[in-house]
Design a protein around this nucleic acid. Structure first.
Length: 593
RNA sequence: GCGGGUGUAGCUCAGCGGUUUAGAGCGCCGGCCUGUCACGCCGGAGGCCGCGGGUUCAAAUCCCGUCAUCCGCGCCA
């Protein structure tokens, strides 16, 4: 007997189908055997519908258990009014079963699939080990469907804008700058390795030399670095590159694409999100000054304030010394924080210390002119008024201040601002607040290595007007480099690239990459640029992170079908795994132990 | 590499200022039940308390180590 194939899907059945003879395929989501009558909620990807079985007709009905895969024939019936279930989409009807076939019996499950409340706490490694079960949950299916729609709409939008998708190699060349590479041994010449791409960066620039002009790719990228809640060893980016453009062109195209696509997905799935609006723009310097970081969460204000001048002549030695030695006094306002207990303020200070603060000075505005807190005795009434003006503090607020070098103070206050925003519930969960951060510095000083290192990558174009600082003050050179930030998370990063070999040579020199290294690592691309390279630039938005933002998930694993756990291990496939002796031999490898 | 959390029944958790037989809910097995929709009722099985060592008359509980996992720092051009 062949497969009894469905004529309807579970989730589509309504009162108007009453009387229809139907065949359904799906899984037993819940089973309720009352003795004289048995109910089964049958689930397929469209939803649930209730089956009714007459026990006398089905003596083997006990074989229908949770997650048994079934083919069912039956007749749709409108339920009696008092037995309708308004909580179910299909709750007005039920299917009276005339026959069924068990397509696939199921063992007892390792965790319950029919209780989303309990599922939120199930061990992640267990969920991932049994991902094929985990993905049966409607909430997981929905996330994958949202991701699919996101990717499809991106592809459509990009093609409409004249881009073509080009696949670039997964097995390619190691580039030791930046993240650690995943390496693949080369069988024919032991000791040589391919690498998996950290991004298709060099290929897409070669495609510009190749005259493709508008390239994109839904690209898998690989980085062998330690994970976070929003970082996996392999992830997906919309990689794109354009020729004959300036920074503004890339910004316009990217913003238009993201807004169109995200708003369409929000509409299609009825997501709990307000439409994405025009992106704000901040320079890197502004962002650092106002928010202490290059990825500000703009869902709330609480901009940092700078009280260095106010405390330059302070009686408070710590502050005065900090300013005298070139540091800063910066702070953030904690709305309503004046009411915090001594212990709670201590916890805030502890929090600040974790990120490098030497201490946390606090000043509570109990009322208009009544200040308390760790530095209150050094703050005159005039100073208090000045601070109130600087910080925007109102009665009941607490000011948290840090004296340190600019970078450390910013880092501490960046984290503290987010913490305060969280505690005060200032984030609107419906909001996807996008912004551009532009004008990043080209290079930053790597104290450990004792040299300049690229903020983005070595092909990033410096702003022409800043090239005058190349020899005198490289840290002052700004780049045509830009990030998309949403709700405090970096969503995309891009730049205009260097297409002139003379400028590229000067940048390599600045970065301390000598002639030989240039040839070994980048010879192919440098030569390519000598054959009429067009000006070009691009960007790469992270698909996983966009999917996270849309689905309100805190963890990247929730939007990836088959993720790895924290140490890069895959409990489902049991990878990485050992390989047999012959494979070692073929690759000319042995363990040095 | 570092810091913090967690690890007890198939799942989620309680117990952890040492003590007799380690508990609950869900699930599972058996029985009853004709309108449930987290069905209900009765009964039952199920535990190297992550692993190793130590302290103690006595350890799930205290100490040390170790492994796994989660979150974060470093790292992620």
């Amino acid at each position: 007997m062949g497969l009894l194939q469905r004529t309807k899907v579970c989730g589509e059945l309504r009162s108007c189908n009453a009387g229809d003879e139907v065949v359904l395929n799906g899984w037993a989501h819940r089973v309720r055997d009352l003795g004289g009558v048995m109910f089964v909620d049958l689930r397929d990807r469209s939803g649930l519908v209730q089956l009714v079985l007459d026990p006398s007709a089905f003596p083997n009905r006990a074989e229908i258990r949770s997650e048994t895969c079934l083919a069912v024939t039956g007749k749709v019936r409108e339920r009696a009014e008092e037995t309708k279930n308004p909580k179910m989409e299909t709750g007005d009807v039920e299917v009276v079963v005339t026959g069924y076939t068990v397509l696939g019996p199921s063992k007892t499950l390792p965790f319950p699939l029919n209780d989303e409340d309990q599922m939120v706490n199930v061990n992640e490694d267990l969920r991932i080990k049994y991902r094929y079960l985990d993905l049966r949950r409607p909430s997981m299916y929905r996330r994958l469907a949202i991701r699919s729609s996101l990717i499809n709409r991106i592809r459509r939008h990009m093609e409409e804008q004249g881009f073509i998708e080009v696949e670039t190699p997964i097995i390619t060349k190691s580039t030791p700058e930046g993240a650690r590479d995943y390496l693949v041994p080369y069988r024919l010449e032991p000791g040589k390795f391919y690498a998996l791409p950290q991004s298709p960066q060099q290929y897409k620039q070669l495609l510009m030399v190749a005259g493709i002009e508008r390239y994109f790719q839904i690209a898998k990228c690989f980085r062998d670095e330690s994970q976070r809640a929003d970082r996996q060893p392999e992830f997906t980016q919309l990689d794109l590159e354009m020729s004959f453009v300036v920074q503004e062109d890339v910004l316009q195209l990217t913003e238009g694409m993201l807004r169109d696509v995200l708003n369409a997905v929000i509409g299609q799935f009825g997501l709990d999100k307000d439409p994405v609006e025009t992106f704000e723009r901040l320079t890197f310097d502004e962002s650092m000054h106002l928010y202490g970081c290059d990825k500000p969460d703009l869902r709330f204000g609480l901009q940092l304030f700078d009280a260095s001048d106010a405390f330059a002549d302070s009686e408070f030695g710590v502050f005065r010394n900090a300013v005298e030695s070139g540091g800063v006094i910066r702070g953030v306002r904690y709305p309503g924080g004046a009411g915090l207990s001594r212990k709670e303020v201590g916890q805030l200070e502890e929090f600040a210390r974790e990120f490098g603060a030497k201490g946390l000075a606090t000043l509570a505005f109990e009322s208009e002119n009544d200040v308390k807190g760790s530095i209150a005795k050094f703050v005159s009434a005039d100073k208090a008024a000045e601070l109130r003006k600087l910080s925007g503090a109102e009665p009941g607020d607490l000011l948290c201040m840090v004296a340190d070098d600019y970078a450390t103070a910013n880092n501490v206050l960046y984290r503290l601002r987010l913490e305060i925003g969280e505690r005060c519930g200032l984030r609107n969960p419906r909001e996807l607040k996008f912004c551009w951060v532009v004008d990043f510095p080209l290079v930053e000083w790597d104290a450990e290595a004792g040299r300049w290192s690229p903020t983005h990558h070595p092909f990033t174009s410096p702003k022409e007007e800043d090239l005058v600082y190349l020899d005198s003050d490289p840290g002052r050179i700004r780049a045509d480099c830009y990030d998309v930030v949403c709700n405090g998370t970096e969503m995309a990063s891009g730049s205009i690239r260097i297409h002139r070999t003379d400028i590229q040579a000067r940048i390599f020199k600045l970065l301390g990459i000598d002639e030989k290294t240039q040839q070994d690592r980048f010879g192919h691309i440098l030569e390519a640029f000598s054959f009429g390279a067009p000006p070009h630039g691009g960007i790469a938005p992270g698909i996983d992170r966009l999917a996270m933002a849309l689905t309100d998930t805190e963890n990247i694993r929730e939007v990836i079908a088959f993720p790895k756990v924290g140490n890069g291990y895959d409990p489902l496939m049991d990878a990485p795994s050992t390989v047999d002796a012959q494979q070692w031999a073929e690759l000319g490898l042995r363990l040095s132990k």
